[in-house]
Amino acid sequence: MFYPNSPQTSPQLTQIPYGQQYAMMQRQIQQPYHPFATTEPQARLYPYHYQGPIQQEQGGFITQQSTAASPQYVQMRVTPVDQSIMSGYPNQTANGSSSSSFNYNIHPQQQQQQQQQQQQLRHHAMPVGSVPLQDDRYRKQLIVNYLAPDVTSTDLHELFSRFGELDGARIIYDKQTNMSKGYGFVYFCHAEDAKEAVERMSGYEFHGKWLKVGYSTNPLNIVPSNSSPYVHAGSRGAAG
């Protein structure tokens, strides 16, 4: 039997160049792979992502010199942007860049009308829970959420009447099932009393439920100042 490094198959040491006398086997001759043993700084910083320098080929596509990437890492192929796409944008300079302001050559009167329309939209648009300043009635009506099913309009009136005089209180019921929808409205005579009720009743436990109280901004629920107070009856038909 002959071994790869046996004296019968191995040459004389004098015939082997210096430095390879003890590297006779194939696994010894093959050098191990060192990912950080390279002179390129990109490979030292990113050993798993770097795959060699990027070269520009004919046709405008950018390719990489090395083989496919590892399945664990996804390499994105980048193509140059066609400058003709950006030619339609206004205020574009000769080098292809555009300024931040756009001039669509709008007539001054049209621009003024658009600004007025935007101001009107901001004036009428009102986020949930906010209180408008032009109508004091919005500051007097509250919406009470997360009410228990057994709470009546009379219970709601008695709960909030300790903060001040009320114009009314009612629970909203479903017309088909005649069941409470879980929320109601309270109408105060003074805005200061309503503000105190919002601050003190939010998070209050009532009939096993934690109440959420806020201003009601729905104009359909506003009680006119010259109208008669609501009837605080315990029956659902009268309260709904």
Rank of each mutant, 00 (worst) to 15 (best):
I54M: 15
N221S: 09
I62R: 03
T79P: 01
S100R: 05
G59F: 10
Q65H: 09
M24V: 07
K140E: 09
R200D: 11
S225F: 10
S227T: 10
A197G: 05
G203I: 11
Q8R: 12
V128D: 03
Q118P: 11
P127A: 14
V231S: 13
T154Y: 15
P4F: 00
S70Q: 14
Q8N: 07
A148G: 09
A148V: 07
V74F: 15
N145H: 05
S100N: 13
Y183A: 02
F185R: 02
R200I: 13
M126W: 03
M126F: 01
P35W: 00
V81K: 03
I85M: 01
V231Q: 00
Q83L: 14
Q31T: 07
N95Q: 10
S87F: 11
L166N: 05
E205H: 09
V231T: 00
N5I: 13
N145Y: 12
Q15A: 13
L159N: 13
D136H: 01
R139M: 00
Q72S: 08
V151W: 10
A239V: 11
R236I: 10
A148S: 11
Q112T: 10
G129K: 12
K212S: 05
T39S: 04
S130D: 10
F102L: 11
Q21W: 00
N91C: 07
F160L: 09
R200N: 15
A94S: 03
T93M: 06
A94K: 13
Q65G: 03
N91M: 10
N95P: 12
P47H: 06
S101R: 02
I16V: 10
H232V: 06
I54L: 06
L156N: 14
P229M: 04
T154N: 10
P127D: 03
G129W: 05
V151N: 00
H232M: 10
I106L: 10
K181F: 12
G19C: 15
G19L: 07
S130T: 07
G164V: 05
G59P: 15
Q109T: 05
L159E: 14
S70D: 06
Y215E: 05
G168S: 07
I16W: 15
M201L: 02
Q113N: 04
S70Y: 14
A239Q: 01
A191F: 04
Q31K: 04
S228M: 14
P132K: 07
F160R: 07
Q75A: 03
P11W: 11
Y18P: 08
Q21M: 15
I16E: 08
N103W: 03
T63E: 06
N221D: 04
S99W: 08
Q118L: 14
D174G: 04
N145G: 06
G164Y: 07
N95M: 11
V78A: 04
P90G: 12
V186D: 13
G214F: 05
P7L: 07
E40F: 15
N221T: 10
V186E: 05
S98A: 12
P224K: 15
A43S: 05
Q56M: 15
Q31C: 12
K175G: 02
G182P: 02
P41C: 15
F160S: 08
R44F: 15
Y183R: 01
T177I: 04
E165Y: 13
Y46H: 01
T217V: 01
N5L: 09
Q26F: 00
F188C: 04
S202V: 08
Q72R: 05
A37Y: 00
Y3C: 04
L166V: 03
G19K: 05
D167T: 09
P127L: 12
G237L: 06
I54V: 10
Y138Q: 00
P11N: 13
V81R: 08
F185A: 05
G88M: 14
L156M: 02
D135M: 01
D193S: 14
Y183N: 12
H157Y: 10
G184T: 07
G88N: 13
P71G: 05
Q55F: 05
G52A: 12
Q116S: 08
Y187T: 06
Q116N: 00
I143Y: 01
S98G: 07
